[in-house]
Design a binder for these strands. Structure first.
Lengths: 228, 228
DNA sequence: TAGAATAATAGTGTCGACAATAAGGGTGTT
DNA sequence: AACACCCTTATTGTCGACACTATTATTCTA
């Protein structure tokens, strides 16, 4: 499945196309983490000029997927344990905020949709036991809806456009599928209930814990990955 | 005074130069908020090619000072009350986090330097009573040091590079100098004490309140400005 | 042989020009 | 007179080439 729901802006220009393609390849690891990016090489590969490619690189830098140094070049971000912690600290804080705001600002039908989504995931989970569908698409969609429910455009942009691809990159490349699936479901349910009761404070706290647990989970995978 | 301490990266390339210049002009209002940006016009004005200017525009977009639409163009961000609230909600959350982390991670000499800075500001404030020096440079420096004290590189980047210029823009263009100066000093002092005692929870709470108060202050100015 | 200075080379930064798209004005029709 | 359509014009997107910088390989010297 794609992350189409993360990007409302239609893809019109060539640099948009390159941006979306490169983003996917970086997130999925097709373009290796930490690797150097050669502008002429990639420009040829995508069949565009360097100017177009550089436009895409700028966008990728904005969402923290590549890092640039003047007169030196561009390289894909390196996945490190330190960075993972840093990003999750930020994410936890921001999504906690989003969740608190969502408790105040989400419309009844939005909350209803969220509950339906969760039920749907429960069934999918039962059917496809062990597969990572729930974690990948479902979890993302769940978080995404709550973020949107905050109604804070700046926050939405920050999380959905700038931060989420990097988070996905960690999750995808660390291989997220495991025992946390069912536990995450319960946590999601508790969060929905808090939002439904307009208990922003509780909703924020639950979301922060939920994300911390998720971080601990990835951290474990990461340590395993490192010690190979 | 400049905001040089906000940007560690040296200014080497031409697009860097244009970026820094445009950023200042946008923040200070020389380039009016909400105005459309003509690439050919500005390129001529800065004496660079459009490619160079566009590079700068991309950077400005990254720190939320301009907004781009494909095939339409670029315009300076518009200062609205809604956006102010949104940005300050995010800022409050992130700087609260930074403050909590700083309580754990700041070195003793950093804390010492922070206290010295505050004393220095107290004296400056007495001398230049009524002037906005304290608010503008001092307050910014204070917050900046705490953010750096969090030792979270991602958070530092997010706040110092991406968000602070937009916040400065509101403060500068709303004309920040007023009765909050002395009150802010007391709040700063309380925050330092919490950090010194390694009380992250308290430090976070105090910082969040401090920023909320600051928001309320700007909000007032904003409402006055709007009703003129 | 090891190290430093220097030359070759690859890569990034910048430029001017062309192509494609969107906005504005004008004309024609109902 | 109002609306719709078309054309003109200005602006953005994209391209290929040149200039400058950093890296690598080579040569010279101690």
């Amino acid at each position: 499945m794609t992350d189409s729901f993360l990007n409302e802006a239609p893809i019109t220009t060539a640099s948009d196309q390159v941006f979306v393609n490169m983003r996917r390849e970086i997130v999925e690891g097709t373009i290796a983490q930490g690797s150097k990016i050669s502008e002429p090489e990639l420009a040829k590969r995508y069949g565009v000029s360097r100017a177009t490619l550089r436009e895409a690189l700028n966008r990728l830098e904005s969402c923290y997927l590549v890092e640039r140094k003047a007169n030196v070049g561009c390289r894909v971000v390196a996945l490190t344990a330190e960075r993972l912690i840093e990003v999750y600290q930020v994410r936890s804080s921001l999504e906690g905020l989003a969740c608190r705001l969502a408790a105040d600002n989400m419309e009844p039908d939005e909350i209803k949709g969220l509950k339906q989504l969760l039920n749907q995931h429960l069934q999918t989970q039962r059917v496809k036991e062990g597969e990572s569908y729930y974690q990948e698409a479902g979890d993302l969609d769940f978080h995404y809806r709550i973020i949107k429910g905050s109604k804070n455009a700046h926050l939405i942009h920050l999380l959905c456009n700038d931060l989420y691809q990097l988070i996905r990159m960690y999750r995808v490349q660390m291989g997220m599928a495991g025992p946390r699936v069912s536990k995450a479901f319960d946590e999601h349910l508790a969060i929905i209930n808090a939002i439904e009761n307009h208990d922003g404070e509780l909703a924020e706290m639950l979301m922060k814990r939920h994300i911390s647990a998720s971080q601990a989970n990835i951290q474990t995978k990461f340590d395993l990955y490192q010690s190979e």
